[in-house]
Amino acid sequence: MTTDAMTASDSDPKIRIRGVEKSFGPKRVLDGVDLDVGKGESVVIIGGSGTGKSVLLKCVLGLLHPDTGSIRIDGEETAGASGKERDRLLHKFGMLFQSAALFDSLPVWENVAFRLIHGDKMPRKDAREIAVEKLRAVGLKADVADLFPAELSGGMQKRVGLARAIAAEPEIIFFDEPTTGLDPIMADVINDLIVACREDLGATTLSITHDMASARKIADRIAMIYHGKIIWVGDAEAVDASGNDFVDQFVNGRAEGPIQMELRG
């Protein structure tokens, strides 16, 4: 465990998570998570299924309320924020969901332009133009704009989800398992897009994944979560020489090791 690496180089981190705990009934999902994400940095949280990765993201977004602990965005406390405060904070975020979570009742362009139309009150015509432009940025042609999400393949849905996440040019982007369910080539295309989007927008990103190829590609730093705690944080290049048995087992994908797969999550 490398505690010294947990503090980001930047003195005032973009996201500062301290002692966050969250339980569902008797099950403790997050058990005191500490993590810093510096401005413009890309941190990837790795960990097995059911280790609390998604719950942590949802706590930072305010979709779930942590039981205890502090989450600061730009030095501002968000745990327990509500109403207008929360809306103002959400303005900084964009999120790509694991299942893309596109609105299936709306055509693709309206999905991408959703925040511009409803959040920023942009006229629909202008919003559509930006949507088409963002779709082009993620490698989709303009004629996709009028299709409905159900008519798209999984990879295309992910691209549209990405275009929606970046449409309002947020300061912080979350990626929830961006490559899950995609073939290796499409996964790499999505990874490249994530890197490109981040460089274009200069955004801070926090991703969760269990795909090591993806983690290596998009991460500046990697953090490993296990049993609701961050057990290792370090630079992306250092992940193979972490000296941590848990990380080694996960990175190399071995069934034997200190991590025992729980049959009941």
Partner: peptide, 12 residues
């Protein structure tokens, strides 16, 4: 399918 969470993250 997390569309309601997505609404919230899109400030709606």
């Amino acid at each position: 399918t997390e569309q309601i969470d997505a609404l919230t993250t899109l400030e709606t």
